[in-house]
Amino acid sequence: MKYAIIAKKDMPRWFDSLKRHGKIFGPRKKEHQYVFRPIDEFEEMSLVYIPTILPPKKYYFPQKEALLKFSIDPYKTDKAIKEFEEYILFAVHTCDIAGIQCLDVVFNDNPADPNYLNRKEKTTVIGIECMDYCDSHASCAAVGNHVPRGGYDIMLTDLDGSYAMHINSEKGEKLAVGKSYIREMNATDRARLKKAQDEKLKKFHNEFSKDIKSVERAFDDGFFSPVWQDVGRRCVGCTNCTAVCPTCYCFDIADEMEMNLNDGVRTRTWSYCQMDDFAKVATGEDFRPGRDGRQRHRYYRKFKYPVTKYNKYFCTGCGRCTRTCMAKISLVETVNALLDNKA
């Protein structure tokens, strides 16, 4: 079964059936925003939502995780995590799935990262296609992430009274087969799906003032652009932009001790290039001291460096950095300013 149909009224049933495959995390309303949280009942979720405060990254690359257990005397090291648990990410936007695909590349790159890979092996991704812009900050169409492009086990597309299911892996297949209320797609359904997706595409447009190749060229030439001074002057250094990014993966390593002061764990925690001592060495030399250089670095890590290294944009277009910025630094405006500057 490659494509299937499930009626909306049967979603709670299906959701309940997923529980025995693992813990389920899905989008939930928090005040006027949304967050991924453990979900017990289908109704707790909001399936139409603005990207969550933090991306689902926190489940496969947590804010803080143990890398290694150790004892000082006698010298001993041990695995920090003995077993990784199965879990399901439910209703993930295509932009956030693109984020997962980016980190997959990074953490598979030699030398591969065991914690990440172990967690990813236990992850099931059930995506949901956005049928319209979530809000005005998204720039997913510019990077092509407004449509599903793999990276999921099942993708749900809203067809009014039902969802189309694109089953994209064996794992996904297992979750969908043998359910009386999930049936294979027929020709009529296919036509409906195509129509819905065509209608949807009309609503999306390139959010940047030029195409993505021009953006890439603007970054090639824009390293010394005054745009960065402007952004740096406005930046307050709160680090929110890097905290909420689905493709930021910088980290710090530190030891935490138990009270016996002999046993402990080596942990990795999120660290951001916007932090004051991110590039500062023990002697006090800071190799990226300005907020302008730090913001520029963030943008180049989305639109230039990974393109060179992995042939991939690390901006997923989710719009989180713009939404979260207190200084109202907008990613789309910054990129457009860089494009104008070049012209």
Partner: peptide, 10 residues
Amino acid sequence: TYPVCVECRQ
């Protein structure tokens, strides 16, 4: 040396 926002966002 970083601000409270770091923890608040996390």
